[in-house]
């Protein structure tokens, strides 16, 4: 069982560079072919400062900042018990290649379900760019099957 003492825990913020290659790789994996996501020249022609990160990209930063295996081990659990319950994105601005995004993650709740057979670990993660503008926030529900 995951201990409730972890509620409120804030992980150390991590600053990550949004890489062109990584964005292209993610676009390839998702089958995205539109120029602003895969071709830096097309992004430039469209008036953007760099490749545009697609809507689910904050999730990539979220796990780059804190790998799932490290999150799970912090909670005293194992990966095999983990299912992804929810991933909710709120957007306040775009993320482009070349941005420096600071990722700050906090555990906001731990909820027992089905008499403890399941536990939901809820986190809130904020993404702030190099200009101190918050560009996105995610709410994640990690489901553990005991």
């Amino acid at each position: 069982m995951i201990e409730k003492k972890h509620i409120g825990h804030e992980f150390r913020p991590v600053t990550l560079t949004v890489e062109v290659g990584r964005l292209k790789f993610l676009a390839k994996a998702l089958g995205i072919t539109e120029g602003i996501y895969v071709d830096p020249n097309a992004a430039k022609v469209a008036g953007l400062p760099g490749l545009l990160a697609p809507p689910t990209y904050p999730f990539v930063l979220e796990i780059e900042a804190l790998e799932l295996v490290d999150l799970v081990s912090f909670l005293g659990e194992t990966l095999g018990k983990l299912l992804h319950g929810e991933e909710n994105f709120t957007y306040f601005g775009p993320i482009y290649a070349g941005d420096e995004i600071t990722v700050s993650k906090k555990i906001t709740d731990i909820i027992d379900k089905k008499g403890g057979a399941l536990q939901f670990v809820i986190s809130k993660t904020e993404f702030t760019n190099q200009n101190d503008k918050k560009v996105a926030e995610t709410l994640t529900n990690y489901v553990f099957r005991h």
């Binding site: 994996a29 998702l30 089958g31 689910t56 299912l83 319950g85 909710n88 994105f89 775009p94």
Partner: peptide, 25 residues
């Protein structure tokens, strides 16, 4: 699959119009 849902949206509207996306698996 959430990425595919995002791709469906950005095929339909510019990404700058998206205020939020909630995914429940």
């Amino acid at each position: 699959s959430a990425g595919y849902l995002g791709r469906m949206l950005t095929n339909w509207v510019p990404q700058s119009t998206i205020r939020s996306i909630k995914n429940r698996f």
